[in-house]
Design a binder for these strands. Sequence first.
DNA 1: AGCGCTATGCGATCATGTTCGCATAGATGC
DNA 2: GCATCTATGCGAACATGATCGCATAGCGCT
Lengths: 213, 213
Amino acid sequence: MAASGARPRPDDGRLLRGARSRARIREAARALFRERGFDAATLRAIAARAGMGASSIYRHVRSKHELLVLELAELQEEAWREFRRRDARTTATRERVLRFFERQHELLARHPDLTVIAIRATTYPDSRVASRALALNDRTIGLLAEILQGGRVRGDLDPGVDVLVAARALFYGAIGARISWANGLLSEGACRTAIEDTVELLFRGLGRAPASP
Amino acid sequence: MAASGARPRPDDGRLLRGARSRARIREAARALFRERGFDAATLRAIAARAGMGASSIYRHVRSKHELLVLELAELQEEAWREFRRRDARTTATRERVLRFFERQHELLARHPDLTVIAIRATTYPDSRVASRALALNDRTIGLLAEILQGGRVRGDLDPGVDVLVAARALFYGAIGARISWANGLLSEGACRTAIEDTVELLFRGLGRAPASP
DNA sequence: AGCGCTATGCGATCATGTTCGCATAGATGC
DNA sequence: GCATCTATGCGAACATGATCGCATAGCGCT
């Protein structure tokens, strides 16, 4: 593992070689994930494309799922950039939330496979991978909470709600729709509609009596 | 596969033997899942306990995950029985929903492993398994929708809400909390609280203006 | 140059879910 | 009773993610 201990010379030739190898591995993995999907992208194939033996990959990565997490982190970054580029803090909170899910969905829809496997990664015994996947989720939940909080201080939302709980509910509602979509039970449009419906529902609430404590 | 073609004699000795084998396999699988967890319950170990070779299992089951689905279906049944036993249709809808999640959680808490793997099963390439796992989810969503619908006709709920959307939101909210719990990020109590909070939130709604269309 | 040390790489090997070809036993038809 | 068919079972083999022990190379130190 390259990340441990003191590293006096960052220009150590070996470390540079390692960094280049890591880059090649990630590139190969990304390409193969997109070409064949996660499961069909064999470690041996990734290794071959990266120009090395399969076992060498484990010098740089703890498991195949870790490669996935790296890829997911990048996708998340991309979705966020796109969202932030167009986002205005003054927009109605509900709109902002909807826009966010739109951006996210735009990206995930291009990689249905990864969407599903991301969820799978969350269920793996290797707690390293699972918690990193969950951390990604938490980041998204955090962003949603931030949006909601903005709305709350602006008086856009019921001040009594816990924004974190709400953000979680929104997030997992979206996940649920995407699982169905990724399994072919929902068309892409229906998935988007389902997410919108969930947002709508959360804003309106189920109860008849509105602000009854 | 035993389920195909005509079966003139249901007392066919071979079929009986097959049925007994299936029963042994399921019993062995259940025991080992609980003793060691799904991943650590090797197919070869299951086979050994069932008194047969590993490959023979595949005469009765399409994959290891199918054994899981069988087990999950049984757990679901158990949770429902318990819920129905104590449920009264006249109770407040929110209470009923909370009680349902309580029963479900009681059971799942005894099998944290299965909780997680059930989600994983939902992400599997073998669409047979994935859709069966999803079907179980849909059943639960259906029950929740039924509860909500009962509340709606009784005037307990805002008549404008789509009970199915709401049921899904509730269900996936619970799933989200359980994923965190199963990964050790949430204590069991915190998981229950999180689910309750989600229910609470859904009933109250985020928006400030209550019944605005 | 020589000696350790560490990062990297590799082939053999393992564990495990799954598939395959073959064997057996029970049923059916003649 | 024999041929045939089918449900069941088995051991060998396969694919693949992961591990292990050993080799190599680049670095620092003397």
